[in-house]
């Protein structure tokens, strides 16, 4: 195999709250190869959200090194992080996080706006991504006109439209009923089967069992 997609070495994230210092992550080592489907499992307060923020380049480690797709993240400024997110990562959130009052098509096309594509190309690729997820007849609907499962599928389409190396899913089934949740997990498994690297954060061991590998977070440390 080639170089790993994600490589964390001795990563710590310490929040400085003035008098006290809280270590949300301590000395985490984690490697994810291209094509993996990894679940990061842990209860709330375990530090898994902090880990997800660091892996998603929304936050920087206070100690240790993180290399994503060959890029050392610690050396990047805010604009550099934004560019790395834009090129490399597709996010799927628990609460979908679609832009309100904005059609599914515009929502999916938005990441391409920040890559500087023309409007014509953006809309064409967004439409294709929605069709791949079976939402070809919902392109003009705004989020409030869509069910939770449909909204999450729009969010997955938005995450995939840039063809990112990494799909980062944070509790992707957390807000869904079991049928829609199973639906979303099927989609993720299919995407992984097609070669997409997926890192999923969850507290639900049933959901985690869909992944091909699991790591557990407890008190800011990786266990087993």
């Amino acid at each position: 195999m080639s170089e790993p997609l994600i490589q964390l070495q001795g990563v710590s994230r310490i929040y400085d709250l003035g008098r006290v210092q809280v270590a949300a992550l301590q000395e985490v080592d984690l490697t994810v190869e291209p094509g993996e489907f990894l679940a990061i499992v842990g209860p709330s307060g375990s530090g898994k959200s902090t880990l997800m923020n660091i892996v998603g380049c929304l936050d920087r480690p206070t100690a240790g090194t993180y290399t994503l797709a060959g890029t050392p993240v610690a050396e990047l400024n805010d604009d550099g992080l934004a560019r790395l997110r834009s090129r490399t990562i597709g996010f799927v959130f628990q609460s979908y996080n679609l832009l309100p009052r904005t059609s599914a098509l515009e929502n999916v096309a938005t990441p391409l706006l920040y890559q500087g594509l023309s409007r014509k190309d953006r809309l064409a690729r967004a439409r294709a991504a929605l069709e791949r997820l079976g939402l070809g007849d919902r392109v003009d609907h705004v989020p409030t006109e869509l069910s939770g499962g449909q909204q999450q599928r729009v969010a997955i389409a938005r995450a995939l439209v840039t063809e990112p190396a990494l799909l980062l899913a944070d509790e992707p089934t957390g807000n869904l009923d079991s049928a829609s949740g199973a639906d979303v997990m099927t989609i993720l498994r299919e995407l992984n089967a097609a070669g997409r690297t997926i890192v999923m954060i969850t507290h639900d061991s049933d959901v985690a069992s869909s992944a091909r590998r699991q790591v557990h977070v407890r008190d800011g440390r990786l266990v087993a």
Binding site: D78, A82, S86, F91, T110, Y114, R158
Partner: peptide
């Protein structure tokens, strides 16, 4: 605020 967070997460820079 949330919209701004979403836009930043999916690749918007501060100047965007």
């Amino acid at each position: 605020t949330r919209e701004i967070g979403i836009r930043k997460a999916i690749g918007a820079r501060g100047r965007d």
